[in-house]
Amino acid sequence: MILPPFLKPHDTVGLISTSSFTHESYIQEVVKILESWKLKPVLGKTIGARHGSMAGSDTLRLKDLQGMLNNDDIKAIFQATGGYGIVRIIDQLDFSHFKYKPKWVVGYSDTTFLHNHLQGRLSTGSIHGTMAADLEAGYHATSWESLRKALFGEDLHYTVKPHPLNRLGTSDGILVGGTVSLLCNSKGTMSEVNSNGKILFLEEVGEKHFRLDSYLISLKHAGKFDYVRGLIVGELIDMEDDDPPFGKTPEEIILDAVKEYDFPVSFGFKAGHGQVNKALILGALVHLKVDAQGTTFSFET
């Protein structure tokens, strides 16, 4: 797996939205944050654009992302928001230039499709991290500082409190993953997650319990857990129980889906759609340890 070059002060970076439209007030806040890191942000044509719920037409969003992938002056591409839209354009993207001159792509949620494509098809790392839209809930230093560390190649490691459903063990593996529903929806596409021999990260937002179970069972039937080396579970936000109740919490649903496997499982990591979204370097080698004292994991870059 190849990791793009880490950022340096005075690098130029791009800010775009290939999914839903973005409120411009948050963009100006992100510009200030990036400038405080001594970076030079450039806004794409999708910033401020709107076509229905998306940040411009498919053509505009495709052209905006393609242009930044091909522009050697742009050293990282920041997604402004998630929502929906990448799946409509991803198979039309040309990665032939990017393949030989990779750069960091940052985002989460709908960006899961793009992350999986980069890791599975191009063996290239990317960053699951906070976005402009998250500023609607306020600035959370932990999220942005962890993203800065990941982008600039500083030491990045995490400690997570013990969770009663954790499954103990140690493992090493390349980190992949993202939003459960999108991992499920990507099955059979060019952007399907390759979890074989990997440590898998999962998070989700706004799903009913039975639907979370259906996504996980579908991934299980597709063999996505068969050769996993470890599982890190992030935030499970705004999950709704069913009527009648499904009978399991979201955490219990996940643990039940992987009950016959023996890889370590860690719950409670603050990444995903919650207020705190700590950065993860997808495509990097992770050293994972889950014991009675909690979970620790670090990235080898």
Rank of each mutant, 00 (worst) to 15 (best):
E207Y: 00
F210K: 01
E203N: 15
G223K: 09
V233H: 02
G234R: 02
I199R: 01
G206H: 11
L231H: 05
Y215G: 00
Y215T: 01
G223R: 03
F210R: 00
F210E: 09
R229P: 01
Y215P: 01
E235S: 15
E235N: 12
I217H: 11
K208G: 02
K224I: 05
E204A: 06
L219D: 03
F201N: 00
H221F: 14
V233F: 02
H221T: 11
L216P: 04
V205P: 00
V205W: 00
L212A: 07
K220A: 09
G230Y: 10
L212P: 07
L216W: 06
L236G: 03
L200F: 04
V205K: 09
D226E: 14
V205G: 05
S195L: 10
E204H: 13
Y215R: 02
N194C: 13
F201R: 12
D226G: 04
Y227F: 10
G197W: 12
V228F: 12
R211E: 05
G230F: 04
G197N: 10
F225S: 04
L200G: 09
L212M: 11
H221C: 08
E207G: 00
G197I: 12
G234A: 02
E207L: 04
V228G: 08
I199D: 08
G223F: 11
G206D: 09
G223A: 03
R229Y: 00
I232F: 07
I237S: 12
E203Q: 12
V233Q: 01
R211P: 04
F225C: 03
L236D: 05
I237T: 14
F201H: 11
N196K: 15
E235I: 05
K208S: 03
V228K: 06
